[in-house]
Design a protein around this nucleic acid. Structure first.
Length: 744
DNA sequence: CGCGAGGATATTTTT
DNA sequence: TATCCTCGCG
């Protein structure tokens, strides 16, 4: 039996359709990576395609790495010449070869978000723009959206005609571009934009890559933005062997420019496109999938599809509401602990997902006290930490002297007695002569009014030149050690002698080992070890890339980071209106659209779970130092009761709770939640004469529905709300006063 | 020029 | 709550 026969019908069709455009609509957990890897194998082994002619694009390095590994496993030989990488690194690789055609040096620097912000500050200062009115962040996001739509600065200016605000942005955009170019730097968006520009203006380069990439595959296609689409389109336009895989329901990067029309209109752009839907889910249980379907059904304008599974119903979902986020964290951590102690699960089978990074802190505290291994993905990127950026700035300066930002970052780190006034003098001088900062520094004695700073700057330049000379003969790790040694960077940290310095030193050690790992990798792949190569690798890593599946720890991350992953047990925490969906999306000008994106995010979260899913929310939560009160997320309410577990749904209020609620508050809260299964206040195990005369677990008889099992009883102000699983009539919810149920 | 204090400010998600 | 920025003093 061939490997392809292990695939289902639809999957096989996708694999066998090798020529011409193909859109695979692959629902969550429908085995899309499997299809892609088998398709690659099929191309090579059955169709005799040269691996060299295949390009597979993913969004994260982690996804690329996994795909590479899986391809290696099924393709006999030659798999190493398949080009598997992310959009950004694909572009970097191309640009490193040809960007000189666009007037840049091939050893350009890549600016991350921090660098962009620093640069933007300079730009605003230079243009005398009041950052109280035009915030750096919003200026940058305006520019980013423009770039994603392939609108250049001059085009932006033309479009801004008659609009003062937009003209201001145009002005900033132009200056920002000028500075980037002067620094021989590209920002993230530029990587894509410049690659497309390269193809549009250099027919021979385009021709080369079109010939090379005769078969193109794109994963997570729903998250592509306009430039990315353009890039693919232009590359594929010659041979038209383009296969894209995506799920419009999992499009969650609109804020980053992702254009959902790319997937919705694929058939219009590529008229002869074949469309194949993968709707069988192999990951989750029926209950989880039904819940996911129920939630996503509330969105309009999606491609029609319904996931199904041959897996059993599985466990029902668990809902919990807590008084505070603190209780929520305690419950989840305790729940994980008890499962692991019982031997059902390993720590690594558990994931906690949340909307915002800030929510990780409470969990972290609980995990530390409970002594449970955990790993938080995201937050501050390792390479964004001060000490790491400082040291990398040294490497950048050595590699590309034109990166002013890097030079200015380190000129006084560690402290060399070079202050702001001196730096500004150099800056002005450099600007007036239209030369780079470092270049100006080299001729510091020519700069007027520099005074005693000059000598210190001269020795800084001497130090850097010394490093540059040494860099010729040293490996990167040796160079790094030399930098740390001769600048006294570590000594300075140590002298501060804080606890914080300790973690920083640890980070530096980790940087060292990352450098060594890079060198070893190059050796393995027989590629030359270059400083630019390392710096670019560093610039393009995502936090998720470092997630190692082999360690045994609980994983905590945002819903965005979780896309593409799966875990046996998933906790969706912070299911509250204002948190998820976020306050911002509710308040937006176009709430419907924004909420739909949040709902897709929720869909992604639910479908990460293989066996068990727990959704939790808290009534009270500290945000930015103030206590906020939230109601349960609408997404929780969109999940029908029949997929939820019965029994004790709500935690009893803490006995020691000082703020005892008044009867009025209690009544008010239960009133609010009436239409829904659960009461935010309390759930009683009804006992004795106090309740409606029956209890959870009892068999009862209803006049119309016949006999059934009581699965939940909740108190709702004046009445009890009873959930009964009837033998023939299904599950019903009713008020005890009306239902007149009889205990059997 | 360096440092510390104090106040303003911000937080949605990320390659 | 945590970070960033500004301001004033030594």
């Amino acid at each position: 039996m061939s490997i392809y026969e292990t695939l289902n019908d639809m999957q096989q069709q996708a694999v066998y359709h090798t020529d011409g455009p193909l859109l695979i609509l692959a629902g969550a957990g429908s085995g899309k990576t499997r299809v892609l890897t088998h398709r690659i194998a099929y191309l090579i082994e059955e169709k005799g395609i040269n691996p060299w002619n295949i390009l597979a694009i993913t969004f994260t390095n982690k996804a690329a790495g996994e795909m590479r590994e899986r391809v290696d496993n099924i393709v006999g030989y030659g798999s190493e010449s398949i080009w598997v990488s992310t959009f950004h690194s694909t572009c970097v690789r191309i640009l490193r070869r040809y960007i000189d055609r666009l007037g840049y040096d091939t050893n350009f620097t890549i600016y991350d978000t921090d660098d962009q912000k620093t640069l933007m500050k300079d730009v605003c200062k230079h243009l005398q723009i009041d950052t109280k009115i035009y915030k750096e962040r919003s200026l940058l996001s305006a520019i980013s959206s423009a770039k994603n739509e392939m609108i250049t600065a001059s085009e932006y200016r033309l479009q801004a005609e008659g609009d003062y605000g937009r003209q201001k942005i145009a002005q900033v955009y132009e200056e920002y571009e000028k500075q980037l170019r002067a620094n021989n730097a590209l920002d993230f968006d530029d990587l894509l934009v410049k690659a497309v520009q390269l193809f549009q203006t250099q027919p021979d380069v385009l021709e080369y890559y079109q010939e090379r990439f005769r078969y193109i595959m794109v994963d997570e296609y729903q998250d592509t933005n306009t430039v990315q689409f353009k890039l693919i389109q232009i590359l594929a336009s010659k041979y038209r062997n383009l296969c894209v895989v995506g799920d419009d329901d999992q499009s969650i990067y609109k804020f980053r420019g992702a254009n959902i029309r790319n997937i919705l209109n694929f058939e219009q752009v590529f008229e002869d496109a074949r469309v194949i839907k993968l709707e069988q889910n192999y990951r989750s249980t029926g209950n989880i999938l039904n819940a996911a379907n129920a939630v996503i059904r509330h969105n309009r304008g999606r491609k029609d599809k319904t996931l199904w599974t041959a897996n059993g119903e599985g466990e029902k979902l668990t809902f919990r509401e807590f008084d505070s986020a603190y209780d929520e964290a305690e419950y989840i951590v305790g729940d994980i602990k008890s499962h692991v102690n019982a031997g059902d699960l390993a720590y690594s089978d558990n994931a906690i997902l949340y909307r915002t990074n800030a929510q990780s802190r409470l969990f972290e505290e609980k995990f530390v006290t409970a002594n449970i291994p955990y790993k938080i993905v995201g937050g501050i990127n390792f390479y964004a930490r001060k000490e790491i950026k400082d040291l990398l700035a040294y490497l950048k300066t050595i590699d590309n002297g034109r990166d002013d930002l890097a030079v200015r970052r380190i000129i006084n780190v560690p402290k060399r007695g070079i202050g702001l006034t001196s730096i500004n003098r150099v800056q002005e001088y450099a600007a007036s002569r239209e030369i780079g900062f470092y270049e100006a520094l080299r001729g510091v004695d020519l700069i007027p009014n520099i005074g005693r700073g000059a000598a210190r700057m001269e020795s800084f330049v001497a130090l850097m030149e010394h490093f540059k000379a040494e860099a010729e003969n040293l490996s990167i790790s040796e160079l790094m050690d030399l930098i740390i040694e001769e600048t006294g960077y570590e000594e300075e940290l140590k002298s501060e002698g804080e606890i914080e310095a300790e973690t920083r030193l640890e980070n530096i050690d980790e940087l060292r080992s990352k450098i060594v790992a890079y060198e070893e990798l190059c050796e393995e792949q027989q590629t030359p070890v270059t400083l630019s190569g390392f710096l670019e690798e560093v610039a393009l890593v995502a936090d998720i890339d470092s997630l190692d599946e082999n360690g045994d720890y609980v994983v905590l991350m945002t819903l965005h980071s979780a896309k593409g992953l799966e875990f046996p047990q998933v906790y969706l925490a912070g299911m509250e209106e204002g948190i998820f969906p976020s306050y911002i999306s509710i308040q937006a000008d176009n709430p419907e659209e924004e909420i739909e994106e949040e709902r897709r995010l929720c869909y992604v979260g639910i479908t990460r779970a293989k066996k068990n899913l727990t959704l939790t929310c808290a009534r009270r939560r500290m945000i930015r130092g103030e206590t906020q009160y939230h109601t349960m997320s609408r997404f929780m309410k969109e999940i029908p009761v029949e997929f939820l577990s019965s029994g004790e749904i709500f935690e009893k209020m803490k006995k020691a709770e000082p703020l005892k609620q008044t009867a009025y508050q209690q009544a008010k809260q239960s009133f609010h939640s009436k239409p829904f299964v659960m009461k935010p206040v309390q759930q009683f195990k009804v006992t004795g004469g106090k309740g409606p005369g029956y209890d959870v677990g009892d068999r009862v008889r209803h006049v119309k529905f016949g006999e059934g099992l009581v699965t939940a009883i909740t108190e709702g102000g004046r009445d009890y709300e009873v959930t009964v699983d009837f033998d023939s009539a299904g599950t019903k919810k009713m008020f005890a006063a009306f239902a007149k149920l009889q205990k059997i």
